[in-house]
Each structure stands twice: as structure tokens, then as C-alpha cells.
Nucleic acid binder design. Structure first.
Lengths: 339, 339
DNA sequence: CTGAAAGCGCTTACAG
DNA sequence: CTGAAAGCGCTTACAG
């Protein structure tokens, strides 16, 4: 069943040319006479021949495979990024070998090892921290790495993020302008750069205006923890009239939790999230949020990794992309000043 | 920078053995004396050697890569499936090469071609129909294919789905038992087996009880279309007091649309979805839905594809996994009978 | 158990 | 432009 494995030699025989000629016809920068091209193409399609990428990869050292390490596919932002990355790379003739991983450091080591075994041309990590050791190994092996939606200060490794500090600032400025004076913060995981940067921008802007947050709790990017944190705040002596939540995924949980207590949004408490995932626009949440421009981030990541693959000496770069605050019902403009 | 490319020959020299000996030490079913193993392992780790998967793949004809074709990553069900599939396969030493694609038939042809170029050991398609031609080509090339969450009648190709007909029936029985008599249906895309099967089960159960649906509209697995369909139903002469929606993703849109009109759920209209994605349990929706047991589906898919890779003569199988109806607030039990 | 040798399916100098 | 030949890094009979 199946006379599989049609090789370039088979095509060569049928076309009456050498095996090298066949190879040249299928190699982009090749030189072959129109006549040869024609004969080879005819024979190839008759036989159903396609060059073996593995063999090609072994010789050229280019697999045209890019490793992607992701975690948390329950946060809508990442599937969207994955889809965008896959599409953008596909258009350039590259493909994504996906590895799902938690943030556990040891697993990441193992995974990067696996990735390297596959001779991937590059690695994109989304929502995973990379140790310096790992970074060093990739550099030694000449494998470009780009971190997506995560920065890492200590190492000189490329990273693409949104302008998280500025974003946190926007959330604070917006809330203060809307007249809020009792503002809480349920942050993103403080073990991540996104969580830290957004918090830094947020608290910085508050402090600059002489304000102090009612509460600051690490939501760990977890629904349960975030929801509980919100209730803790409301049960305190100084319940906030607005909460900035470190990402949309947690903000939805916070809204669910508050509503379960009969707390009205935004009347009793306004909510701002971060990401602007599709569900933020759904009527049930109608969430005011700072947008992470996922398409631009995907494009920058793609360009960066491709540039580094093309030129191994290309310097690591850090790209920050600014995103607007999207005003929706969960935190309207001039809420308190209308009173 | 980087003395990359440590080959088995380098290790052999350092260990004082032949290159074949090195290869044997790294080949699972090999035979090597303890002394050889020790010397080779020492040399290998000193040099940082790891076998080149590409070279290995070329010889053995096994890449340990499985192609995954997905679409619609905005429907939470698929990211979850992707994550599960990736984890399960990773545990078996396989990895997923991801291709995102719409259902456009031509693109799929092209993609499968790409996939075959990479010498993938198998292909899993999620939410994509495969033409007979494509199926034939894969069979000819000896590449196992498993369709995930989609069946296809005409071809003898493996498929794993939930028990969609039974699921549709459950939705109908539940709604009738709850006392509903004016029941509408916003179906999944009728170009898909899931959309058709759920509808068939649903309408069949209704008919068996002597009931006729108030409306049947194809929601195309699209939020906008589904929401509009719901409003169309409510604006008609016979507004339904319950709607069965073809999947959760559309059901959320339907709930948003109805609420925007001030229609109360479930008091005015009860809603049932299909999938039981995580968001169905979120308080804002609290959606009654028929669960697709994603973990079991993932496991069955993994076992099936691995079995077919191991034994090329393994017959194609169709596996249906039954899932329970999960009762939540959007469609309570005995709703009308309580009145 | 182990080494020498052939070969997987290609690309790429090397001479024409 | 084109063919013969070497070689990419491995695995796997084949003889010891």
C-alpha cells in the first residue's frame, strides 16, 4: 500500500537529468535552464514528489521550525497570541512546534533541551521566565530567543511586551480623573515582569498625585485568588470604590465575586482590567481595560526572531508597544464628578 | 562564539570508542557494555552532546512530530484541547507542530502538504474537514490521521467526538422535562458534523415527544450571527421560552443579546449551551450546558494516533464519548413546573 | 558487545 | 547550466 518515499533520484531518472538538477529546481536560489525546470517539474508532479524537509534541514542547518513555549491557555490572551504567531510565521515559511509548560523552572530547562534536539531555528517563550543558564545555552548553540509578553532584566535577551509601566499609569490616572479616591489594586503575579511593571506604573502615578491605595494584593493571575482578594477588600474597613486588576482574566473573576455580593459595578465599585481580550467587550462584563495590542506584539516578535535567525549577530532588542485604555461600562469616565 | 554542533564522532573520539558505539548508547533498544555506556555518557555530557533528531528522523523515518491543524482559537474549547493534546503527547516523547487554518478547503490542502513535507508521524485535525482526496494522500503516504471533535461520514478515517446526537437529545429532554413548550434552536454550523449531529439529536427528541421547535437557525459558530438569531426569534410571533444553542461560545453571545433587550434568563427564556468550557461556570453566565469531556477526548485521540503510528495496519476507529448535562442557572431543572 | 561500512535524501562546492 | 562526488549526523545490517 503506498509506494511512499519518492526521492529526488526517482524524479531525476524519470526526467532524464541528474539528481543534482532536481535538487536545484527545488532550491530557491538555484540555477537551472527553463528546459530542465520544465522536465523536472513534470516528472515531480507525476510522481508526487516533494523535497524531504528533514534531509534538507540536516544539511542547511535550518529546520524552519520555531519552538513556542506557552502556559496558561485559559487566559484568552495566549491562544490569540499563538494563533497570530502561527499565522505570521506560516506566511514566512516557518512553523511552530508547541510546548506547553507551567512556569516551573526545571520543566522549562527540560523543554528547551527538547527544543534544541529538534534543531529549532529559534525559540519564542510566552509567559515563561528563562533562567540565565538556559539563555546562555541557547546563545552558545546559536539559537535566537524572543520572550513574548515578558521581560527579564538581568539578561540581554530579546523581549516584546506592551508598555506595562505606562499602562499601569494610565489605569491610575483614569481612575483618579473619574473622581475615585479609594482605589485598590489586585496585581498580576509579582514573580512576573508584567505583574511588577503594571503595579509599578499604577502605584507610581497614585503616589505622584499624593494618593495611597486602599489595598494591594497579589492576584497571582488566578481567578480564585483574585476573587477572594476582591472580597477581602470589600470586607475591610476601607472598601475601595475602584479596583485596578492586573489582567482581564482576573478582572472577570473579580466582577463575578463582587456581583455575587450584590455589589454594583461600576456604581459601588469600578473595575479596570488589562489586556482587552475579546471577552472584555462582551456585554456581561463590558470591561474598561488597557489594551495589549496583540497583533502589533505578534508582528514585532515575528520580525525580531526572523531577523535574529537571518543575522546571528543581530543584537538582542527590547520592544515595548503602547496600548490605549479602552473605556467601557465597568469604569466610565467622570463617574464621580457627575454626582 | 559557540563551538556548536557536537557530533557523535566528537564523542566517540573523546570516549575512545567507535561512532557506532556512541549511537548505540543513545538508541533505546541498543546493546552496549556497561563500560562503554559509562565512557560514552561521560564524554557526551562533558561535550554537551545530544543526538540530532533530524538525522535520526531521516534514517528511521520517524520524526516524533505530530501535526495539529486548528481553527477558531477564540472558542475556549480548542485552546484547552491543544493544551491537553500537547501535554499528553509530550509525555510520550512526541511534539505538536501547529498549523492554524480556517475551514477553507484549499488552505487545508496546502497545509496538509506542508505537514507531509515535515515528515510528521501523524496528523490531528481539530475543527477542520478533510477532503477525500487529502485523506487518500495521507493514507498513501502512510500518515495516520485522527479527526478531533469532528466526524466525516464518507471516509474511513479515525475520529474522536463527544456523543453529539445523544447530547442534543439530552438538551431537548431536559428542556421538555423542565416544562418548556416553546423551544428554539440556534444550531452549530451545519457544514460541520458537530453542528449537524447535535441538531439531529435535539430535533429528534423533540419530534419523538410530538413537539415542534419554534425556530431553527444556523448560528454558524459565530457570536454575531447567533446573537442576531436570538433577537430574531424573540421578535417573532412565537418567541421561545427556551433556546438550545449549538455551543457555549455562541450561547454567551445569545445571553448578552437577550439581556441587552431586558429579557431575563432563565425567567423569560432559558438557555442551554454545549461544551462546558470554563467560562460556562463563571457567574456572569452560569450556563447550563452539555459537557464535552475534553480530557477523555484528548486521551482517546492520543491513544488512537499513537496506536496507528505503531501499527500502520491498525484500522481507523470512531470513538464517541458521552458527556453529562451540567445544570446551572441559565436553565434550571423543573423551571416551569414550579409555577 | 563492537567496529567498519553502507546508506537515509538531500545540498553544495567542484569541474566541466 | 549541469553532472559526479562529497558530506550533513545519524542508524543499522554485517562481520567479527
Amino acid at each position: 500500500m503506498a509506494q511512499d518515499k519518492v526521492t529526488s533520484l526517482d524524479v531525476a531518472k524519470r526526467a532524464g537529468v541528474s539528481q543534482s538538477a532536481v535538487s536545484r529546481v527545488f532550491t530557491p536560489g538555484a540555477s537551472a535552464s527553463p528546459k530542465t525546470v520544465e522536465k523536472v517539474k513534470a516528472a515531480a508532479s507525476a510522481l508526487g514528489y516533494r523535497p524531504n524537509m528533514m534531509a534538507r534541514a540536516m544539511i542547511t542547518g535550518k529546520s524552519r521550525i520555531i519552538g513556542l513555549i506557552v502556559a496558561y491557555l485559559d487566559n484568552q490572551f495566549y491562544p490569540l497570541a499563538l494563533e497570530g504567531l502561527s499565522n505570521a510565521l506560516q506566511a514566512q515559511g516557518y512553523h511552530l512546534l508547541v510546548f506547553t509548560a507551567s512556569n516551573a523552572q526545571d520543566r522549562v530547562t527540560e523543554i528547551v533541551q527538547d527544543l534544541m534536539d529538534y534543531q529549532v531555528d529559534g525559540i519564542i517563550t510566552a509567559s515563561v521566565g528563562m533562567s540565565n543558564d538556559l539563555t546562555a545555552r541557547c546563545a552558545a548553540a546559536g539559537i535566537p530567543v524572543v520572550m513574548f509578553n515578558r521581560g527579564q532584566d538581568e539578561t540581554e535577551i530579546s523581549a516584546v511586551t506592551s508598555a506595562n509601566v505606562a499602562g499601569g499609569r494610565k489605569a491610575a490616572d483614569f481612575l483618579m480623573a473619574a473622581g475615585h479616591r479609594h482605589i485598590g489594586h489586585i496585581s498580576g503575579w509579582q514573580g512576573s515582569s508584567t505583574g511588577r511593571d503594571r503595579q509599578r506604573g499604577f502605584l507610581g502615578a497614585l503616589a505622584a498625585a499624593g494618593h495611597v491605595p486602599t489595598h494591594v494584593i497579589d492576584g497571582m493571575y488566578d481567578r480564585q485568588i483574585a476573587g477572594d482578594a476582591a472580597l477581602t477588600m470589600m470586607d475591610s474597613a476601607t472598601p475601595p470604590d475602584a479596583i485596578f486588576v492586573g489582567n482581564d482574566h482576573m478582572a472577570f473573576a473579580v466582577m463575578d465575586a463582587l456581583r455575587s455580593r450584590g455589589i454594583r459595578i461600576p456604581d459601588d465599585t469600578a473595575i479596570i482590567g488589562y489586556d482587552d481580550v475579546p471577552a472584555a467587550a462582551w456585554a456581561a462584563y463590558d470591561l474598561t481595560t488597557v489594551r495589549q495590542p496583540v497583533n502589533q506584539m505578534v508582528q514585532a516578535t515575528t520580525e525580531l526572531i526572523l531577523a535574529q535567525i537571518t543575522d546571528p549577530d543581530a543584537p538582542a532588542r527590547r520592544i515595548e508597544i503602547d496600548g490605549p485604555l479602552i473605556t467601557r461600562g465597568s469604569a466610565p469616565q467622570n463617574q464621580r464628578t457627575k454626582t
